[in-house]
Amino acid sequence: MKKIQITDVIFYGVGGQGVLTAAEVMGWAALLNGHHVKKTEVHGMAQRGGSVESFIRFGKQVYSPLPVDSHVDFLVCLHPEEHVRFKDNLKPRGVDLIKYLEKAREAVADKKQFTNTFMLGVLSHYLSIPESCWLTAMEKVFHRSIEENKAFFAQGRKMGGSL
């Protein structure tokens, strides 16, 4: 049996930053693109301002909800102080999006709640999921400010690959 090609992403940060919401959009985008998706979450005590992470894996068929050797293709960290937690878990050719976090913070200014959407935009640049899937995914996940979310997503998508 040949190893099945799977893309592994981890979203992480601190409870309340929209880590789980960003992961949810990513999950839907992959699903809408025809992938099998497995995505892990944290609930309960862990959410009260503590560290939060969500793994997403997608491909033709995904068995394990966690990456088998704990290494991922993309690190999407929303909090600079949390970055260290998974910085050594990147695959050799993986991409660490921490370099975009400062740009994201500048772009959203005092609208901090859109940092996650901007970073999703950056991530989308690196993945071969069509833009239409991302837009539909956002419509499914965000209940408010959909247009603003799409605008910050677009900004992030343009920024992707520039650093």
Binding site: L31, H36, V37, K38, K39, T40, E41, V42, L66
Partner: peptide
């Protein structure tokens, strides 16, 4: 927990 809070298609 790992099944309760994993999402999939």
């Amino acid at each position: 927990t790992r099944i309760c809070h994993t999402k999939e298609n």
